[in-house]
């Protein structure tokens, strides 16, 4: 039997990788991929606690996280397409019209 803390630490490391990707990458699609990594890390933590406590609620929450991730990917990629069509670049530093 694998102790739960191992799963939690894998989840924490994956979440860290997602956060670092959000800091480091400048391509907006790479930023969306980093968000997906973070969501998956949280899913792993949810499922680990769910099986630790013998309750199904954690897995239900993973289901909802998945639905929100699907909606986020659809809307986010539509925005990416609109952004690329307007300024021929996916670099988030180039989209600075609202920057003071």
């Amino acid at each position: 039997m694998i102790p739960i803390s191992w799963y939690l630490i894998v989840g924490a490391v994956l979440f860290l990788i997602g956060v670092l990707g959000f800091f480091i990458k400048r391509n907006i699609i790479a930023l969306l991929l980093s968000v997906e990594i973070m969501l998956n890390a949280v899913n792993l933590t949810f499922v680990a606690f769910s099986s630790q406590h013998g309750q199904i609620s954690g897995q239900i929450f993973v289901f909802f996280v998945l639905v929100v991730a699907a909606a986020e990917a659809a809307v986010g990629l539509a925005l990416v397409i609109a952004m690329f069509r307007n300024r021929e670049s996916l670099n988030v530093d180039r989209s600075n019209l609202l920057k003071w």
Binding site: I29, L33, S50, S51, Q59, F63, L66
Partner: peptide, 23 residues
Amino acid sequence: LLRADFIAMINVIVYAGAIMVLF
């Protein structure tokens, strides 16, 4: 491994199958 069979299945089908194909 955590005995979350349904989550494992929809992770492959919905995430890797649908969302990543969209990407």
